[in-house]
Nucleic acid binder design. Structure first.
Lengths: 247, 247
DNA sequence: TATAATCTCTTACCTCAGGTCGGAGTCAAA
DNA sequence: TTTGACTCCGACCTGAGGTAAGAGATTATA
């Protein structure tokens, strides 16, 4: 099955000019070119175009897209990677949305807002710095930045701070679809338990029991679920999984 | 309070060059210009810049932003409008994400996908046409399009329908903080299992095992978590709880 | 079969939202 | 007074296309 420029344009919503452009920069070549110069695209080309558009949607430069597709010729891997990138972008947008909500609330009450908060999530420079070193995999490969900094740290004292950090990490993991089996999750739990051990006697099983209580108890569950839907269940699973591993 | 270009750049993450550019096109003028030519911005300008960035995030052209801000000088209205636009964009992204998911599933099974479906949500032309005449308010004012074609109910057969109904019920319960112990949850699971028993042999324990698999398997968990954060964990708990009760 | 309407190719130039570079003036601190 | 950081402004560059125009190809209609 082969398609004319017009048909491809119609199907994909891209203009003929854009197809020509992609050909010129070697991003998407026609399957064949007739003697009269007419270009025809096949199924393989349509699939590649689809992937180009997914990446374009993520604001990759055409050059980056070319690299991504050429370095990862396995379509399924590409698609999965695009999936997690889109998920990552969602976080940034959630951040911006929160800033917008906060701004509306401040404006409604007529209370002035801190200048830093005003640009939370919008300030690309800032969060690119804040997350330097994180998510190396995607960053190296795509130069794509992921927003993971959520809480304002120094507003809390040390204890609350550690707890909030742990929670925020779990929220991020939950939102990113990280398995409770993942080493990063186990590590976080281990660290959290060690911290708690500074002023109380608790072990992995005790912690698991505690999280199960937090999940079953209506009041505490509500507190956690308000922070992030699903959090109480996730943490409980993670804690039980961690305790189970130690046996 | 007034800020130098450097300070504004630092706060907002925008470059000095961009500030200059905005000044040149009359989008954001400094509050004052000293005799030495230095430009200074006040609180009012920072607020305007914030709004510019919200709009820019929504891919409005600078000219459109100028019009939007000049025609709607009421900040609160602007912010609210931006809020609904961002919400609308979320829909479009959800659409794209679904196309990506479907593509992954087709690719996994090696089944070819219809060419139209391949570009669902990506085809801007298409959804601009599909919603012609709708959302006139925003379109007239901003030339911004909203994706409204979301659910194609009759596209699903009965089976998928029941599953979707069950899932949607669980999502609602999770979001409302309903305990997995709650009778409504047990009842829904019972009903769902009975339905499945029509064409397969499964019991409460089998179902619990299945949900645990869905939670532990990276790909399936991703699918569920995408629908609602925490869903895979909630359903697994609920299923295990239901199976446990029967003993 | 002739003609009109549509499609296609290619090149040259335009646009938008900035980035880069360079020269020159300005300011604060050592 | 000199150094280093900050600022201004203009000229030119970039990416991802859009527009316009001339010319050949194909298809539909008279």
């Amino acid at each position: 099955m082969s398609y004319t420029v017009h048909e491809v344009a119609e199907l994909s919503g891209v203009t003929i000019k854009t197809l020509y452009h992609y050909q010129k920069i070697g991003l998407l070549m026609p399957e064949s070119i007739a003697e009269n110069g007419y270009r025809y695209y096949g199924d393989k080309e349509l699939k590649r175009l689809q992937q180009i558009l997914f990446y374009r949607e993520l604001e990759f430069s055409l050059e980056n897209i070319k690299n991504a597709l050429d370095n990862e010729p396995d379509r399924l891997n590409c698609l999965r990677e695009q999936y997690s990138l889109i998920k990552a972008r969602e976080q940034r947008h959630a951040h911006i949305l929160r800033t917008l909500e906060e701004t509306i609330q401040h404006e409604e009450k007529g209370v002035p807002m801190s200048k830093e908060k005003m640009f939370n999530g919008l300030n690309k420079k800032e969060w690119e710095e804040a997350i330097a070193g994180q998510n190396e995999h995607l960053q190296e490969k795509y130069d794509y930045k992921i927003d993971t900094s959520e809480i304002d740290a120094d507003a809390m004292n040390k204890k609350a701070n550690e707890a909030a950090e742990f929670m925020s990490f779990m929220v991020t993991s939950l939102k990113n679809g990280v398995s409770v089996n993942d080493k990063s999750v186990s590590d976080a739990i281990e660290k959290h338990i060690k911290f708690m051990q500074q002023d109380m006697s608790i072990d992995a099983n005790g912690f698991a029991a505690q999280t199960r209580f937090l999940m079953t108890d209506d009041f505490h569950r509500k507190m956690m679920e308000d922070q992030q839907t699903g959090l109480s269940y996730y943490i409980c699973f993670a804690a039980e999984n961690y305790a189970g591993k130690l046996i």
